[in-house]
Design a binder for these strands. Structure first.
Length: 500
RNA sequence: GCUCCCAUAGUGUAGUGGCCAAUCAUGUGGGCCUCUCGAGCCCACGACUCGGGUUCAAAUCCCGAUGGGAGCACCA
């Protein structure tokens, strides 16, 4: 029986089986192994600047899991490299997290934990799992690349403890001494052989000043903190795969139970400047107006444009925690955002590239345009136009190509036929006109206010917005036939473009 | 150079050996619609990287190739 025949037979016997069942699948994150009794998770940014879209995956996904399983969510600011710290970032980051809807239970600065790090450094030294090295950094690295130990590696713990003491009290200068964690010099992966755990920094720290000179390095402080803070799961990007390998040596040296490590894929975000260092420099040069310049991918910029945090959350949940490398898709993010804001955004007319046109044959026309096409309860924008002839402004491109006699419906206003591209004859207000093929265009009356739309590429589109739009300052609205924007107060109407 | 990770439509995703003639979303094209180049509804387009192997049966397991990505800092 071929496919057609089978189908025909089925149709005869059990037609209901042929109906395609539409399964609305709600996309969910996969379960986490060993999470049944709650989790402790963390998000650990360096306070080098405010958060950007790239940070939100880790921040949101960890949050999602803590919300799902219950437990504790710790924000740990990894401020162990004074030169790169931006003091205001501490506040900017928690503000960004709040905006994102992250429910964290604790905020910890690593800079407040130096004594703890020293304590564990000493333990590692005592156990023979670390050594204090005074080789020139380059020499030490070269030896490591050749799988060779430096002369200090095999010395007795007592000697190291003694040097460590001297390192702490200030007998050395930065670059002269460091504390190194032993891993496996024979390891085929050069990225996991012995790594430096603590070093000297002379630059004052914005929070602790010059109280400490011995600074922990990333892999060391992370391993200590993750254990002490009792992390059950560490969910982070794949770029940390080799760091995990290194950190696991510390767990093994100390005899600690490891958390569950999960690494999601690398995300490439095109066409968006995300480098904190570069952004900071450009702000100082005046190239960007600030951290919330709409050309940027910072949380502050996205919020300003009318991107909702729920959209970002939905996007990352959809993407999930697979270890595939992905391309970030603005388009998909915008689609989620549109789903959220379209049902609530008020509609207004914005006329770019405006052109004055006249309507002859009627001296008073009233317009009631709904603020939202499906939500009549939001009310209308009422405009009364009068004059002889009546004068309005429309988008030039809408009328320029018009040949005489073309039917045009001015949306929510009236019908007309064109006499010339700028002169129209009133043709009643019966909506069947649209059915007959009239083109619908939007317009603004004489009371329109100047408006500027700031596009994400930095371009500014000047035009006129209907007066009622001033009632929605600081809201996300839709400029019909243009796109969604967020309104800001200015001398005129300042709008920041979100997406179509 | 060494090491590691990954591979389903343009993008993201479901899929854990038979129910895959492959899911959903997004996108693109078209249609419906008394008012958006919007929304909604409907239709269409579009993918298992390649080559071997295991098996009655492979998107799914194994090997190899190719391609993409990351790490090899006294940054985080």
């Amino acid at each position: 029986m071929n496919l057609e025949a089978q189908r025909a037979e089925l149709e005869r016997l059990a037609p209901e089986l042929l109906e395609k069942k539409k399964i609305e699948k709600i996309h969910e994150l996969p379960e986490l192994e060993g999470a049944e009794n709650g989790v402790v998770m963390r998000f650990a940014p360096g306070p080098t600047g405010p958060l950007h879209i790239g940070h939100t995956r880790a921040a949101i996904l960890n949050d999602e899991y803590v919300k799902r399983y219950g437990g504790k969510y710790i924000i740990r600011l990894e401020d162990t490299n004074p030169p790169t710290i931006l003091p205001e970032a501490y506040d900017l980051i928690t503000k960004d997290l709040d905006w994102l809807g992250i429910e964290y239970h604790e905020v910890v600065n690593q800079s407040s934990r130096f004594k703890i790090y020293y304590e564990y450094a000493e333990k590692l030294l005592q156990g023979g799992f670390a050594y204090v090295c005074t080789c020139p950094p380059d020499d030490w690295r070269t030896l490591k690349e050749d799988k060779k130990p430096c002369p200090h590696r095999s010395l007795e713990p007592n000697i190291h403890l003694d040097l460590w003491e001297k390192m702490l009290v200030g007998e050395f200068k930065p670059g002269e001494i460091s504390l190194v964690v032993k891993t496996d010099l024979e390891h085929p992966n050069p990225a996991v052989r012995d790594f430096v755990a603590l070093r000297l920094v002379d630059e004052p720290h914005p929070l602790t000043g010059d109280e400490f000179r011995v600074y922990p390095l990333y892999n060391f402080s992370v391993a200590i903190d993750d254990h002490l803070m009792e992390m059950s799961h560490v969910l982070r990007g794949k770029d940390h795969l080799n760091n995990t390998l290194r950190q696991e040596y510390i767990y093994e040296h100390m005899g600690w139970k490891k958390p569950v490590f999960i690494h999601y894929g690398w995300v490439s975000i095109e066409d968006t400047e995300l480098s904190t260092r570069k952004i900071k420099a450009s702000i100082e040069e005046g190239k960007y107006t600030g951290w919330n310049d709409v050309r940027l991918g910072t949380i502050a910029a996205l919020a300003r444009r009318g991107i909702r945090s729920e959209a970002i959350r939905q996007y990352w949940i959809e993407v999930g925690i697979k270890s595939v490398d992905i391309k970030f898709s603005w388009q998909n993010l915008y689609a989620y955002n549109k789903g959220i804001i379209d049902p609530v955004a008020k509609r207004y007319f914005f006329v770019w590239n405006p052109k004055k046109v006249t309507i002859k044959g009627e001296n008073i026309i009233k317009s009631h345009a709904p603020l939202h096409p499906e939500k009549s309860e939001l009310g209308n924008r009422e405009v009364i136009l009068s004059g002889d002839p009546i004068e309005i402004q429309v988008v030039s491109e809408d009328v320029e190509p018009l040949s005489p006699g073309t039917r045009i419906r001015f949306k929510d206003l009236c019908n007309s036929t064109s006499e010339t591209p700028v002169v129209f004859n009133y043709a009643g207000n019966d909506l069947s006109f649209v059915k007959e093929g009239a083109k619908i265009i939007h317009w603004v009356g004489p009371d329109a206010v100047p408006a500027k739309v700031h596009m994400p590429d930095g371009k500014i589109i000047d035009g006129l917005a209907e007066k009622a739009a001033s009632d929605s300052i600081s809201e996300i609205v839709q400029f019909e036939r243009f796109g969604f924007v967020k309104l800001e107060k200015g001398n005129e109407i300042e709008a920041y473009f979100a997406h179509k």
